[in-house]
């Protein structure tokens, strides 16, 4: 098994006994019963967050460096929440989240999020051109001293995502969803993250864009040594990697055996 080889090294990402419940609705009295809690749709998540609902309980997960982990499970099972815990977009009520063996709370959040890049389910572009969008991560204090890539590098990166035909000067808002998702993935890769968190990255995309995004994710893992945690409804058929499969259900994580892969 792989674990034996890597035993001396802490996993790149890990969850230790993580418990998570949505915050109770502000102002609401805390009742334990099912007093018809109202569902609040939350940004970037496919399923509504019901205040006070326990989503994860005692979840352990170790993702070795360079691994490709795929999470499946019914909607509302907490797959997005689990991803968001790794970059502190959610805070667990119990347990700890580790990056290379250290609690992620020890890192300044901007630095953490550059190392553990989270790609939102619905691609979000900033106002401005494709170029401005790609250079956005270099506009923040966390990137002080870094040299932004030149146009040639940006074009090469887009080409890797089968998006080399998009002019850098084009308004990002005019792109199709598929193009925007590729732009967002390219932008996330520009900060050279250690890990990539993909939240249903292809669910809204045309097959061509979906293939380009997944190929890029596989290449990031295999060629660049990056770590990938993918939430997906299994419509993704990997070409080169063999993902470690997990199923999230009832607040717990269950390993799954891959369906007959060489």
């Amino acid at each position: 098994m792989h674990e034996a080889k890597r035993a001396h090294r802490p996993p790149r990402l890990a969850l230790l006994g993580v418990g998570f419940a949505y915050a109770p609705q502000p102002g609401a009295t805390e009742t334990s019963g099912n007093s018809a809690p109202s569902a609040v749709p939350s940004a970037g998540q496919g399923s509504p967050a019901i205040p006070g609902r326990q989503v994860l309980s005692g979840v352990d997960l170790a993702v070795p460096a360079g691994a490709f982990v795929q999470l499946a499970g019914p909607s509302g099972a907490g797959k997005s929440t689990l991803l968001r815990l790794f970059c502190r977009l959610e805070e667990p009520q119990a347990g700890a989240v580790l990056l290379d063996g250290a609690d992620i709370r020890e890192l300044a959040p901007p630095l953490l999020r550059r190392r553990v890049a989270y790609l939102q389910q619905t691609p979000v572009v900033a106002p401005g051109s494709v170029r401005e969008n790609l250079l956005l991560p270099f506009a923040f204090k966390a990137a002080a001293g870094e040299v932004p890539p030149d146009d040639a590098a940006l074009v090469a990166l887009l080409a890797r995502l089968a998006a080399g035909d998009i002019p850098l000067g084009q308004e990002a808002a005019t792109l199709s969803v598929g193009q925007r998702q590729r732009l967002c993935l390219a932008r996330a890769l520009l900060t050279r993250p250690d890990a990539l968190l993909l939240d249903e990255p292809v669910s809204a995309l045309d097959p061509e864009s979906a293939r380009a995004v997944m190929d890029a994710a596989e290449s990031y893992c295999l060629d660049d040594g990056g770590t990938v945690v993918l939430v997906s409804h299994a419509e993704f058929e990997p070409r080169r990697v063999s993902p470690q499969l997990f199923r999230l259900e009832g607040g717990r994580l269950h390993p799954e055996t891959p369906a007959a892969e060489a």
Partner: peptide
């Protein structure tokens, strides 16, 4: 604009940025 804020945070922006 929560999704936009989150996008910037994920790219390494601090809360003010």
């Amino acid at each position: 604009r929560a999704a936009e804020i989150e996008m910037r945070l994920c790219l390494g922006a601090d809360a003010a940025e």
